[in-house]
C-alpha cells in the first residue's frame, strides 16, 4: 500500500462525559417544552386565544434559545460573533409586528 505510510497517527480522546450529559439534558428540556405545548394546546380552551398564542410564542423562543445557544454552540462563541448573529434578528421581530398589524387593520379578504 503506497499511501499507507501517509496515514497519520491519530490519538482518539475518551468521550467527554460531562459534555455529553449536558447535550442529553438539553434534548430533555426540548422534549419537555414540546410536551408542555401539547398540554396547553389541549387543556387551555380556544376562548383564551391571546394567552395560548403568548405561551406558544414564549415556549418557541425558549426552544430556539436552547438550539442556537447549546446545539449550535453560539453561547460559547466570541461576543462579536454572538451579537453579529443576534442583532439582525431584531429586524425579523419588527417585520413580524408590522405585518401582522397591517393584516389586522386591512381585512381585504373578508
Amino acid at each position: 500500500m503506497a499511501h499507507h505510510a501517509h496515514e497519520p497517527q491519530v490519538t482518539v480522546l475518551p468521550p467527554d462525559k460531562a459534555k455529553i450529559k449536558k447535550l442529553w439534558t438539553v434534548a430533555l428540556y426540548l422534549l419537555v417544552i414540546t410536551i408542555f405545548e401539547f398540554a396547553v394546546a389541549f387543556l387551555v380552551p380556544h376562548e383564551y386565544k391571546q394567552l395560548r398564542v403568548w405561551i406558544f410564542v414564549g415556549m418557541t423562543i425558549v426552544k430556539a434559545g436552547y438550539i442556537v445557544g447549546e446545539f449550535m454552540h453560539l453561547r460559547y462563541e466570541v461576543k462579536v460573533l454572538f451579537w453579529s448573529i443576534l442583532i439582525p434578528v431584531l429586524f425579523i421581530v419588527w417585520m413580524l409586528v408590522a405585518f401582522v398589524y397591517e393584516g389586522i387593520k386591512m381585512p381585504v379578504f373578508q
Binding site: T11, V12, P15, D16, K19, L23, W24, A27, T34, F71
Partner: peptide
C-alpha cells in the same frame, strides 16, 4: 418534531466525537 429534535441530538454528538478525532463514533 420529536424525530427532528432527536436527529439534532445525534448530530451534536457527531460533532463532539469529531473534536475527539473518534472516527468510529
Amino acid at each position: 418534531t420529536f424525530i427532528l429534535i432527536m436527529s439534532s441530538v445525534t448530530m451534536v454528538l457527531a460533532v463532539e466525537a469529531g473534536h475527539r478525532m473518534d472516527r468510529k463514533a
